[in-house]
């Protein structure tokens, strides 16, 4: 049956229709002028760019609808450049479309596969040449070469070893120790419990030994958020409750998911939200994760006051702060 079915036939390339510019000299002239105007506009754009660069003051602003109050120099240089480039493109394309030959042409493709004879010849040649190396007959060479090539890539890898030190116990520790005073960030002054009202928060960092400069690496593991709640709002086990002071609770600010600073505290719901991936922690339940991808609560810092009435850490963090890593021991949570 299939032999009887007639399918539609390819009618072949449609007949070429002449453009106006091909037949009407006036239209051709018009097209030429259009292209010329576009190229002229480009020249104007370049002059404008240079003029704006030299003469427009960098501190002048102008209100333009949609853009708002905009820096004039930046806009002028940019729009000059836009005009200078865009019109070259428009001109060239218009030229090609209207004035260059527009008869579609056909080029034959060749099949990529070579003739069977050529392929046979090649196959034989390749086989012969491989045979000539004797690699198949000399397994010792084959295996040792494999070994050598397999290993040679290791050298550059090993040479990269000194890119950085070994992590050691760095990720397990912070600068908080028993008695470290809590210092306000960025003021770097100690803080007393009375300084915080119920519903108040403070961003704090540990007091570093005199003469030590605080680096970003310190902040990256030491940042702590202090929050004061009504003591009756807590829902903590006795140990964790003893880590708070008069309703003040302290958490590592470094998210246990991916290390962003978690500090969006909602004082009515007592939720802490991480703005990166929306992990939500319940402050009243020792920063238990109640939503989002974080798997562990924010580490709580035990705090108390020293003889001078300043807030201090009672002990270091009992668990590593921040995101997980392979060596992280979860024995304390």
């Amino acid at each position: 049956m299939s032999t009887q079915i007639e399918r539609f036939e390819d009618p072949g390339l449609p007949e070429h229709l002449h453009r106006k510019a091909d037949t009407d000299p006036k239209a051709a002239k018009r097209a030429e002028q259009q292209v010329a105007i576009l190229f002229l506009l480009s020249a104007v754009g370049t002059v404008g760019t240079i003029a704006s660069y030299i003469w427009v003051h960098p501190q002048v602003y102008l209100y333009i609808p949609i853009l708002g109050s905009t820096n004039v120099q930046q806009a002028c240089i940019g729009l000059g450049l836009t005009l200078a480039t865009l019109t070259i493109g428009l001109g060239a394309i218009q030229w090609a479309k209207k004035l260059m030959p527009d008869v579609e042409q056909v080029q034959e493709r060749h099949e990529f596969r070579s003739s069977d004879k050529d392929r046979d010849d090649l196959t034989k040649t390749v086989e012969n040449r491989v045979e000539e190396t004797g690699i198949a007959r000399r397994p010792l060479i084959k295996r040792t070469l494999g070994l050598a090539l397999g290993l040679v890539g290791l050298s550059p890898l090993v040479l990269l070893r000194d890119l950085g030190p070994m992590p050691g116990k760095y990720l397990d520790t912070t600068d908080w120790t028993a008695g470290t005073r809590l210092m306000l960030d960025p003021a770097n002054t100690p803080i007393r419990p009375e300084d915080l009202e119920v519903g108040a928060v403070a961003q704090v960092l540990p007091e570093l030994p005199a003469g030590t400069e605080r680096t970003l690496e310190n902040i990256g593991k030491d940042a702590v958020l202090l929050i004061r709640l009504r003591p009756e709002d807590f829902n903590l086990d006795p140990e964790r409750l003893s880590w708070t002071y008069n309703g003040i609770i302290a958490f590592s600010k470094i998210c246990t998911h991916m290390g962003c600073a978690v500090a969006l505290y909602e004082q009515q719901t007592h939720h802490l939200l991480c703005p990166c991936h929306q992990s939500t922690f319940d402050v009243t339940r020792a920063a238990k994760v109640i939503f989002g991808p974080a798997a562990r609560p924010l580490p709580q810092l035990a705090i108390t006051v020293d003889a001078n009435g300043y807030l201090v850490a009672k002990q270091p963090f009992t668990v590593p702060i921040g995101p997980s890593f392979w060596e992280r021991n979860s024995k304390n949570g």
């Binding site: 836009t82 005009l83 480039t85 865009l86 019109t87 070259i88 493109g89 428009l90 060239a92 394309i93």
Partner: peptide, 10 residues
């Protein structure tokens, strides 16, 4: 070629 300038212009 013209299209390069179009992309640059945009």
């Amino acid at each position: 070629g013209g299209f390069f300038f179009i992309v640059f212009g945009v």
